[in-house]
């Protein structure tokens, strides 16, 4: 009798908590950022951003390694990691939030707000990002851009170099999701 109950419970566990079918994931998400000043233009791109969406809950998470950003100048990569973002101490940037009023089943393009917590350089800020979601044949594409203020994330820029780095950095992202399999 007890064994049967346990079996039933186990079955419920396996089926009931198996939410993988509702989850979509990407391992090659793209995030790039730009800093335009009259002195210098800085541009970097990360092609190995991880992101996952849970459709059942409308939740989204993004995680990336800071040292995976590629710069045009190799020395910039070193300075970015060593002097500004301190990737020894804060190796990752993350985002965790919700897509507001998300309709997973709607095909075509929909524009939604994504609200959540963005963590860079160990500092978490609440942000709202306008995102374009495109559903084509069961794969989802999220595209958008937003701006972040350098000061908000406690990134120290020495006064001598202040003209070289923009006060606000524009960030672009593009994620193409596939159904998540373990």
């Amino acid at each position: 009798m007890n064994k049967i109950i346990i079996l039933i419970l186990l079955l419920i566990t396996i089926t009931g908590f198996d939410t993988t079918s509702d989850q979509f994931m990407t391992r090659q998400g793209q995030v790039s950022f730009f800093s335009y000043t009259s002195v210098e233009n800085i541009e970097a791109k990360n092609n190995q951003v991880l992101s996952i969406i849970d459709f059942a809950k409308g939740e989204i998470a993004v995680s990336m390694l800071m040292n995976a950003f590629v710069f045009k100048k190799s020395l910039m990569h070193e300075h970015f990691n060593e002097s500004y973002i301190e990737s020894d101490l804060y190796p990752k940037a993350t985002f965790e939030g919700k897509i507001i009023d998300f309709e997973p089943l709607a095909t075509g393009v929909q524009t939604k707000m994504v609200k959540g917590n963005l963590t860079i350089h160990g500092i978490t800020k609440e942000v709202e990002i306008k995102t374009t979601i495109e559903n084509t044949n069961g794969t989802y594409r999220l595209i958008g851009d937003f701006e972040a203020t350098v000061k908000d994330f406690d990134i120290k820029i020495p006064p001598v170099l202040a003209p070289n780095i923009a006060k606000t950095i524009s960030i672009q992202f593009r994620f193409e999701y596939q159904p998540y399999e373990k």
Binding site: R27, Q48, L50, E59, I60, A61, S63, L65, E96
Partner: peptide
């Protein structure tokens, strides 16, 4: 959480 799940996905 979803973030924990992503942490395990890093190559």
């Amino acid at each position: 959480s979803l973030l924990d799940k992503l942490d395990k996905e890093y190559p």
